[in-house]
Design a protein around this nucleic acid. Structure first.
Lengths: 195, 195
DNA sequence: CTATTAACGTGATTTAGGTCACTACCCTGA
DNA sequence: TCAGGGTAGTGACCTAAATCACGTTAATAG
């Protein structure tokens, strides 16, 4: 399956280790391909996040809805990213987040229990998990810092330089919400920075 | 050393595994006690974060200074927390952060290379690392969400309910900066919420 | 092929929170 | 013992960004 080829490549590249034929069979046996159409939910608020998904194709957003009905996007995800509310996934508590497909979505998904098995038995998988966890920590650290210390304009500039491809794949509304801005403010920022 | 006893207890409690006598000797051989006086720096901006420290006693803040000279506190740390800029520590890049003792500080510190050894040879240590990494991911996720979707007042309420002991150990100036607020705003919020 | 709905732009107005200025109260150290 | 830095409270003012209101165009569904 070409789905799995891309997945295997990803694991090997991130981990710097090779997957054996057995490793691959184990992964193929327990990662299930799943398709979601645009606007379908991978996870709904209140549910436990039973599955973690690896995005093969498409995009998604992770967001909350506050008491005033406003949506706040916590994460935008594309190909070769993992999809889950890790708090809910690790602790098996009901999630405070929604994860929704923004484009038709193909993921490979598995359960917490299975992931534990992969970590134990597949060295490349476990090495990958460590690297990803580091990357997440770093990315989150940056994001907190940006949210707290940067102005709206600086956060947008930051996004442009770090994730330029986001602008192609996500609507301005989504980007604005991801940056913690109103769509109007983002529109004005773009206008000013065109000069 | 009573220092190490608390450290060993912590590892065993978090990991759910026991440390052997050999494990303990290995840890004692390569975690060095270090004392910092109030206002001394554990890490300075521009330096590579060569050491990770486990706080035995005292408190510290991790902060940046922006172009206008304003300080932004990213993290406040107390006993039984780890002290490091993980980005710099993992990637060996110059840090964008400062870590400063807010009270006289006692840490047990070690290097990246040594940590790799502990992870390989001490199962309890490696299990602890996994749990901590999960906790960090969860805490960071919450903090990003709070920074993006909550008002100043909600963030303060959130702090009170999640980290009430922070109020006893850190000055209002520090709390304000941690919450991304001016000291004046925090002072007014406190006044209003007293009613 | 219309009819909606989503996406983006732009002006007028409001507001949360920042900035500046001044006061009072500890501490801590010479 | 007293001076000076750190800490907190409060008023007056300012500004970045949200909100509200409206148009325009582009995309999508029936």
């Amino acid at each position: 399956m070409s789905n799995f080829e891309a997945f295997f490549d990803y694991i090997q590249e991130i981990s710097g280790k090779l997957l054996s034929a057995d490793d691959k069979h184990l992964l193929m046996a327990h990662f299930k391909p799943k398709k979601l159409r645009k606007r379908q939910y991978f996870l709904q608020e209140g549910d436990v996040c039973k599955y973690i998904g690896f995005i093969v194709k498409g995009s998604a957003r992770t967001f909350t809805v506050d008491e005033k009905g406003h949506e706040h996007i916590l994460k935008l995800s594309l190909e070769n990213w993992w999809l889950a509310d890790f708090e809910s996934f690790y602790l098996l508590t009901p999630s405070r987040f929604n994860i929704e497909a923004l484009e038709d979505l193909e993921v490979l998904q598995s359960t917490n229990a299975q992931i534990e098995e992969f970590l134990k038995h597949i060295p490349a998988f476990s090495a990958m998990a460590n690297v990803i966890s580091q990357n997440y920590t770093i990315a989150n650290q940056k994001r907190v810092q940006a949210a707290m210390s940067y102005t709206a304009e600086e956060r947008y500039e930051d996004l442009i330089s770090n994730y330029p491809h986001f602008l192609k794949r996500f609507s301005q509304n989504m980007i604005a919400s991801y940056l913690g801005l109103s769509p109007e403010t983002l529109s004005r920022i773009r206008k000013n920075s065109l000069k």
